[in-house]
Amino acid sequence: MSFFGPGHGACPGCGLTIATRNVLEALEGKCFVSNSTGCLEIVSSQYERSAWGVPYIHSLFENAAAVAAGIELALKALKRTDEGKVVVFAGDGATADIGIGPLSGMLDRNHDVIYICLDNEAYQNTGNQQSGLTPTGSNTTTMPAGELMPGKTGRKKDMISIAVGHGIPYVATATVAFYADLRRKVKKAAEIEGAKYIQIHTPCVTGWGIDGKQTLESARLAFETALYPIIEYENGELTKVRKIKDRKPVEEYLRIQRRFRHLFKHPKGQEIIRILQKIADDNAAKFNLDV
């Protein structure tokens, strides 16, 4: 029994549909989905072409967390909580930018909701525009690499710390590169009462400029370079990290993606690569990632 698809309109090799399928299967389809506007919504919820096999709602771009809170309250009031868990699927823009207010409210009130941020690191539905979770140096259509600019100059927003800062019981990162780990985290989240935030690294073939055959490889390299640490917080404490054996230089991750290709020839490219390497090194030190 599939809870999502087939027949949806995602690009071949799409990372976020991999994540979505695994989340739904980890919950055995016993869930209510609130989905923000974005890639996932567009590829799966056209009228009379729904890919969903679980109760699903899409309202707006920035309110999926609040809508989920409302579902949770209704299930409580109507004594129907045994029907399933409430899950949000929202993109990185919907999470870290436009929807951060409603997300903060939902986390702060500690609703019994699993919030899944599908992090493909830009507004990919509309064609790779920069978001708060776009990494440094990434070439997007709203901050393209040019003579002067080397792509994004700011940092990737630390949503994990923001989520942890709300005092919620469970915060984790995951990646489509390790689906068993992803499923374990979702199952664990479902066992915990209160708000849960899981940010899943989901490669985007079109925005990142990779082939479907590189979807898993790029996700794995993000982890292996420590640019995307795979970590777990319970009740505010860092309880688990996925260790890296023979951590790789960030160039290995950057080189296979079109969005970073300019860094290898742009006058400011080396400086950006150094910044990214420092971010990776800092991650490795902060989370003690190296074996």
């Binding site: 599939s2 027949g7 949806h8 056209q46 009379e48 072409r49 729904s50 890919a51 096999g53």
Partner: peptide, 22 residues
Amino acid sequence: RITLGGISKPHSSKSMKTGDWG
């Protein structure tokens, strides 16, 4: 068919055979 507020049936995407994409 025009449903109340645009409600769709589950798995109705199955009518879209995407096998010819690749």
